[in-house]
């Protein structure tokens, strides 16, 4: 049973129970979502020639730990890479939420000249293909002496147009003007109003944005591969890439690495998931 708290138990909203069809859809989606991840495990535990088997084995095999040891042999700094990804992802998430909330609040609730053009500018910048800037950005980062450091991943990612756009939407939708008016009449300054009133209200949406920022950072592949050279500085995606052998593909090794790089995040999400649900549900009760 969920954590939904009924405001007035006598007047129950007529939620209908989730139908069988609903559960079926969820089960199907779950299967489809998880299957590739499960398949990685199958291949890693059965060996490379598993890829060629028809019909494919659907049960795990005995070679998983051998493959894992090969992964660490190929890249002793594998665990370090996962930690690096967590570190970078968290910093980026916090920074993006922080700066986006500030700017999003200004666009949503403040009136200042030239604002409309700035908003359009933000939306416009989202339309520029990022692939174009690679060479120039690399030059910039190299001038800052950040090549082959995690800073090269963090600094360019501190702000995001998407985040500003998101926060503006969220604040617009969730923060009533009256609340801010009342606070301002009571003598609160803009920053006070922002800090004490707005932030608590948008907490769970901020959390969701932070999550997305974290994911984007975690999944980023092209740029980290370009700027990181020393294996101890790798992130998860670059580390998994390190498992390639010359021309051939050792599928078991690659899948093993890919599996190992996804697992900690999955476990983290299971724990975070509970908080996410509770946080979101609390918000629902409040709203």
């Amino acid at each position: 049973m969920s954590n939904y708290v009924l405001k007035n138990p006598n007047k129950r909203p007529k939620w209908h129970k989730v139908s069988f069809f609903g559960y079926l859809m969820l089960a199907l989606i779950t299967f489809i979502s998880i299957f590739p991840f499960y398949w990685m495990f199958i291949v890693a535990s059965n060996g490379t020639d598993e890829i060629s088997k028809i019909p494919p084995t659907l049960l795990p095999g005995p070679r998983f730990f051998t493959v894992v040891s090969h992964v660490y042999e190929a890249l002793p700094a594998f665990n370090q890479a996962l930690l690096n990804s967590f570190y970078v992802g968290t910093l980026v998430a916090v920074a993006q939420v922080f700066f986006s909330a500030l700017a999003g609040f200004a666009f949503a609730k403040l009136n200042f000249r030239g604002q409309r053009y700035l908003v359009l500018f933000v939306v416009f910048t989202m339309m520029l293909p990022s692939q174009l800037g690679i060479i120039a950005l690399f030059k910039e980062i190299s001038l800052m002496n950040l090549i082959d450091t995690l800073g090269a991943l963090i600094i360019p990612a501190l702000v995001t147009a998407f985040g500003v756009f998101w926060m503006r939407q969220v604040i617009d939708a969730q923060v009533p003007n009256e609340l801010l008016e009342a606070a301002s009449i009571d003598g609160a300054g803009v920053f006070r109003a922002y800090w004490s009133l707005v932030l608590p209200i948008i907490a769970q949406s901020s959390f969701v944005l932070g999550l997305f920022s974290f994911l984007a950072s975690w999944n980023d592949f092209l740029w980290p591969l370009l700027v990181l050279n020393t294996p101890e500085n790798f992130t998860a995606q670059v580390a998994v890439n390190q498992l390639k052998s010359s021309y051939a593909i050792d599928y078991a090794l690659n899948m093993g690495g890919a599996f190992l790089s996804t697992l900690p995040l999955l476990i983290l999400f299971i724990f975070v998931g509970r908080r996410l649900v509770r946080g979101v549900m609390d918000g629902a009760v409040k709203g």
């Binding site: 500030l102 700017a103 609040f105 666009f107 949503a108 609730k109 403040l110 009136n111 200042f112 008016e181």
Partner: peptide, 26 residues
């Protein structure tokens, strides 16, 4: 008004400060 949904009693000038970090880094 640039922003018809704004809260009028809040000083809009803060907007420049709040959006500055984003714009500079971007």
């Amino acid at each position: 008004l640039d922003n018809p949904n704004a809260v009028p009693s809040l000083n809009g000038r803060w907007g420049y400060l709040f959006t500055a970090p984003f714009f500079i880094m971007f």
